Simulated assay, not measured.
Amino acid sequence: MPRRLKLAALTASALATALVLAGCSTGASGDAPATDSAATGGDVTIEHAFGETTVPADPQNVVTLGWGSTDAAIALGTIPVAIPFDSYAGDDDGVLPWVKEAVETAGAELPEILPETIDDEPPYEAIAAADPDVILAVYSGITEEQYETLSQIAPTVAYPDQAWSTPWRDVVTTVGKALGKDEQATEVLQGIDDQLAEAAAAHPEFEGKTIAAVWDVAGTFYVYKKEDPRVEFMLDLGFESAPAVDELANGDSTFFYTLSYEQLDQLQADVVLSYSDTQAEADAFLTAPQTSVIPAVQAGNVAQLVGTQYIAAVSPPTALSLPWGLDQLVDALAAATK
Rank of each mutant, 00 (worst) to 15 (best):
residue 171 V to I: 15
residue 171 V to S: 00
residue 171 V to E: 00
residue 172 V to C: 01
residue 172 V to P: 01
residue 174 T to M: 00
residue 175 V to H: 07
residue 176 G to C: 03
residue 177 K to H: 10
residue 178 A to F: 03
residue 178 A to E: 05
residue 179 L to I: 07
residue 179 L to A: 07
residue 179 L to S: 09
residue 180 G to D: 09
residue 180 G to I: 06
residue 180 G to M: 11
residue 181 K to F: 07
residue 182 D to W: 01
residue 184 Q to P: 02
residue 185 A to L: 05
residue 185 A to K: 00
residue 186 T to Y: 01
residue 186 T to P: 02
residue 187 E to N: 15
residue 187 E to R: 12
residue 187 E to A: 14
residue 187 E to D: 15
residue 188 V to R: 07
residue 188 V to K: 04
residue 188 V to L: 04
residue 189 L to R: 12
residue 189 L to K: 05
residue 189 L to V: 09
residue 189 L to C: 04
residue 189 L to E: 09
residue 190 Q to A: 15
residue 190 Q to F: 06
residue 191 G to N: 12
residue 191 G to E: 13
residue 192 I to A: 03
residue 193 D to W: 00
residue 193 D to V: 00
residue 193 D to R: 02
residue 194 D to A: 14
residue 194 D to I: 09
residue 195 Q to S: 12
residue 196 L to S: 11
residue 196 L to I: 11
residue 196 L to Q: 03
residue 197 A to Q: 14
residue 197 A to R: 15
residue 198 E to P: 01
residue 198 E to W: 02
residue 200 A to L: 06
residue 201 A to H: 06
residue 202 A to T: 12
residue 203 H to I: 06
residue 204 P to Q: 11
residue 204 P to R: 03
residue 204 P to C: 11
residue 206 F to C: 05
residue 206 F to M: 05
residue 206 F to H: 01
residue 207 E to K: 07
residue 207 E to Q: 13
residue 208 G to P: 04
residue 208 G to I: 08
residue 210 T to P: 06
residue 210 T to W: 08
residue 210 T to I: 13
residue 211 I to E: 01
residue 211 I to F: 06
residue 211 I to H: 09
residue 212 A to C: 11
residue 213 A to Q: 07
residue 217 V to L: 14
residue 218 A to E: 15
residue 218 A to G: 09
residue 218 A to H: 12
residue 219 G to M: 12
residue 220 T to F: 09
residue 221 F to V: 06
residue 222 Y to G: 05
residue 222 Y to F: 15
residue 222 Y to E: 02
residue 222 Y to V: 04
residue 223 V to L: 10
residue 223 V to Y: 11
residue 226 K to N: 09
residue 226 K to S: 15
residue 226 K to Q: 12
residue 227 E to K: 14
residue 227 E to I: 12
residue 228 D to L: 03
residue 228 D to Q: 15
residue 228 D to S: 14
residue 229 P to D: 14
residue 229 P to L: 03
residue 230 R to S: 06
residue 230 R to C: 05
residue 230 R to F: 03
residue 231 V to W: 07
residue 231 V to N: 11
residue 231 V to H: 12
residue 231 V to I: 14
residue 231 V to D: 08
residue 231 V to K: 05
residue 232 E to F: 01
residue 232 E to P: 02
residue 234 M to P: 08
residue 234 M to A: 11
residue 235 L to S: 02
residue 235 L to T: 12
residue 236 D to C: 07
residue 237 L to G: 03
residue 237 L to F: 04
residue 238 G to I: 11
residue 238 G to H: 11
residue 239 F to Q: 07
residue 239 F to V: 11
residue 239 F to I: 10
residue 239 F to L: 13
residue 239 F to K: 10
residue 240 E to I: 10
residue 240 E to D: 14
residue 241 S to R: 05
residue 242 A to S: 04
residue 243 P to W: 12
residue 243 P to Y: 07
residue 243 P to D: 08
residue 244 A to H: 01
residue 244 A to T: 05
residue 244 A to M: 01
residue 244 A to V: 10
residue 246 D to F: 08
residue 246 D to K: 07
residue 247 E to N: 11
